[in-house]
Amino acid sequence: MPLLDGDDDLWLRRFDGAPPDGVRLVCFPHAGGSASYWFTLSRLLRLEVVAVQYPGRQERRREPLIDTITELSDRVFEVIDRLPPRPTAFLGHSMGAVVAFEVAERLTRAHGTGPEHLFVSGRRGPTVHRAGTVHLQDDTRLVAELRGVGGTDPRFFDDPELLETILPVTRNDYRAVETHHWVPGPPLDCPITALVGDHDPQTSVDDARAWSAHTTGEFGLRVFPGGHFYLDAHRPAVAETITVALAGARTPLTFEEAAS
Rank of each mutant, 00 (worst) to 15 (best):
G6Y: 00
D8Y: 15
L10D: 12
L10G: 12
L12T: 06
R13C: 15
R13D: 10
R14F: 14
F15Y: 12
D21N: 13
L25K: 01
C27K: 04
H30S: 10
S34L: 09
W38L: 06
L41R: 05
L47G: 01
A51F: 05
A51R: 02
A51C: 04
V52M: 01
Y54E: 02
Y54A: 07
P55D: 01
P64I: 14
P64E: 15
T70Y: 12
L72E: 04
F77P: 01
E78S: 14
V79P: 03
D81C: 05
L83H: 00
P85A: 15
P87D: 11
A89G: 11
A89K: 06
S94C: 14
M95K: 05
A100N: 08
F101L: 08
E102M: 08
V103I: 10
A110W: 11
A110R: 13
H111Y: 11
H111T: 13
T113S: 14
G114H: 06
E116G: 13
V120R: 04
S121K: 06
P126M: 11
A131P: 11
A131D: 14
G132W: 04
G132C: 06
T140I: 09
L146Y: 01
R147P: 00
V149L: 14
V149E: 05
G151P: 07
D158P: 01
D159A: 09
E161K: 05
E164A: 15
R171G: 06
Y174R: 10
Y174D: 09
R175M: 12
W182A: 10
P184W: 14
D189I: 02
C190Y: 07
D198W: 04
D198F: 04
S204Q: 05
R209T: 12
R209V: 08
R209K: 09
A210E: 10
W211T: 08
S212H: 12
S212W: 06
G220E: 00
L221N: 03
R222Q: 14
F224E: 06
G226D: 05
G227V: 01
Y230G: 09
L231R: 09
I242D: 03
E256T: 09
